[in-house]
Design a protein around this nucleic acid. Structure first.
Lengths: 214, 214
DNA sequence: ATCTGCCAAGATGTATACAACGCGCGGGAT
DNA sequence: ATCCCGCGCGTTGTATACATCTTGGCAGAT
């Protein structure tokens, strides 16, 4: 049978993806019982997953009431983006990894997906590509704590960003995103990880500015 | 009866303190059953606490083997300190809080404890004061995500630092610590939060240098 | 009609019995 | 003497029954 830890991880990522991709929008009430039935398990292991999601701030459980998907207020959003900017820059300074052809190949694959997305815009695919590109940026540093914390922060606010996409212009956002990837490719072609990090920082800042206009 | 969340939090802090203060040194094997009996509860709520400690990297549970207190290797230690230095500096730049007389009073109380510690050195009290002073430093920024992540990183390595204290000179370390607090007080007397953060960054760097010499 | 009190339903939190798993000891074959 | 198989014990993981809590609606008094 499959390893228990692997099963836990799969359950965790499944639920986290549903939250981040707005299958469960903020305010949605989840039922431990129905989720346990859906995944063919009992409440106990499921609660282990929900507990972790609650520790990460994505859920909130109240005794006798239910488990709700949390929302993020503008204040927390501003603080998180301010911190994410700094961490993005740090990713280019702390324990940078050498830019190998394999690294550039990964980025090229992401750019190709961006081209496909540009031809056929879709918010959900955009969100997925954005996450994958974010993780690629983290792969440029070998500092594991920095990677963990950055991803944690990203996950916490990604769904709010995705929720605001309809209010903005999807095609414009995709175009800006492709520009960022193209700039990053030029920086990595020169082997300049720090420049790539600064590009990322600038785009996080601009992204937040566009976000807060809505 | 006391709130369930409060009881959870108390259990969590109790166990975390025991781990950080080396009541449970790295490698110690914990038993869910005996811990549950000690706290007069069943395994279920206790496992909820252990799960969180495991997510934070302080414990590691293996099916059929046991739950062990984790150790931290030198590589992770270096990465964590490198990141902590940067975050300490950020605490003086992101969302700084005004330096009120109340803030200075809190620091004066910490300094007084430092004087008492100097007169009567004790590793355990030193560790506790160090944690409280660390949290005081975090109180100088209103950026909650930054505070959460910084504390998480600190907790993860504090016990390793404490474990190395016997190999260093306790009185010297306490003297250096008092110097840092005195410097910080001067910076805060001038209302310069950023200077206080830079002092903190410098001392984290020096502390790690002394630490890695052993 | 409105307000009040109570209860029933459904939610999460807890306790407990059982399953799955790994390690180590011990006996027997070689 | 040595190696190997097997089983027993303790551990964590899972399932389930029960306790506790909150909310909403209904019935009755005013």
């Amino acid at each position: 049978m499959a390893d228990a830890g692997a099963r836990f991880h799969q359950l965790y990522e499944t639920l986290r993806t549903r939250i981040c991709l707005l299958d469960y929008p903020p305010g949605t009430q989840l039922s431990e019982t129905v989720l346990a039935e859906e995944f063919g398990t009992s409440r106990t292991p499921l609660r282990r997953v929900l507990a972790r999601l609650e520790d990460e701030g994505l859920l909130r459980s109240v005794h006798g009431v239910g488990t709700m998907v949390t929302d993020v207020d503008v204040h927390e959003m501003a603080q998180t983006y301010a911190l994410r900017m700094e961490l993005a820059q740090l990713a280019g300074m702390l324990d940078p990894v050498p830019v190998t052809p394999e690294v550039r190949a990964v980025l090229d694959a992401l750019i190709a997906r961006g081209d496909g997305l540009f031809a056929q815009p879709d918010p959900r695919h955009f969100a997925q590509l954005n996450l994958d590109y974010f993780r690629f940026g983290l792969s440029l540093t070998a500092n594991q704590p920095l990677r963990d914390m950055s991803e944690r922060l990203y996950i916490r606010t990604a769904r709010i960003w995705l929720k605001s996409i309809p209010r903005m212009d999807l095609s414009d956002e995709i175009a800006v995103f492709r520009d960022e990837m193209a700039q990053t490719r030029r920086a990595l072609a020169a082997g300049d990880t720090q420049a790539a990090a600064l590009i990322r920082r600038a785009h996080i800042s601009l992204s937040y500015a566009r976000l807060s206009q809505t």
